[in-house]
């Protein structure tokens, strides 16, 4: 859990850091705390995993990853936890989760996000996943994204 100052720090930085030579000093001034405390608290949140990383968040489309497919798979419940990490470990998978099915219309329980320069490339990568799943693949689909409607990230 976090305290009120950490929460204020998250609110002050979730949109991004100020583009000034001393950004942590600028945030500290807004919060009414010492710059050293801002840096100390951000370091602590980075160490504890509250912050995944600090840096540039690119728009995937703008850096050439124009084909994005959410590949979804129907994998037997008894096999999924064994094979899921192997799908996640493929170098072209950026997110991989087990999620509940919504039967009857949604039989898929393994979600693996795949990026490529073309849809063909994404389909080829999906074939690699299919081969890895082998007999455990009872069905699959690829949901290509056709538009980013929003990408603001977390806002508390």
């Amino acid at each position: 859990m976090i305290d009120a100052i950490d929460r204020a720090l998250i609110v002050a930085t979730q949109d991004g850091l100020p583009l000034t030579p001393r950004p942590y000093h600028a945030v500290a001034e807004r919060l009414g705390v010492a710059p050293e405390e801002v840096m100390r608290r951000l370091t602590a949140m980075l160490d504890s995993g509250v912050i995944r990383r600090i840096g540039a968040v690119p728009n995937h489309y703008a850096i050439g990853w124009t084909a994005n497919g959410m590949t979804v798979w129907d994998v037997p419940d008894e096999a999924i936890d064994q094979i899921g990490p192997a799908v996640g470990a493929l170098d072209f998978v950026t997110h991989c989760y087990r999620r509940p099915r919504a039967l009857p219309e949604w039989p898929y329980n393994l979600f693996a996000m795949v990026h490529g320069g073309t849809r063909e490339e994404v389909r080829d990568k999906a074939k690699v996943i299919a081969a890895l799943l082998g007999e455990h693949c009872r069905g699959h689909d690829i949901l290509f994204s056709s538009r980013i409607l929003k990408k603001s990230g977390l806002r508390i």
Partner: peptide, 10 residues
């Protein structure tokens, strides 16, 4: 090209 520059919170 960048949507944000700063901490990514979990």
């Amino acid at each position: 090209v960048l949507t944000r520059f700063g901490p990514m919170y979990q």
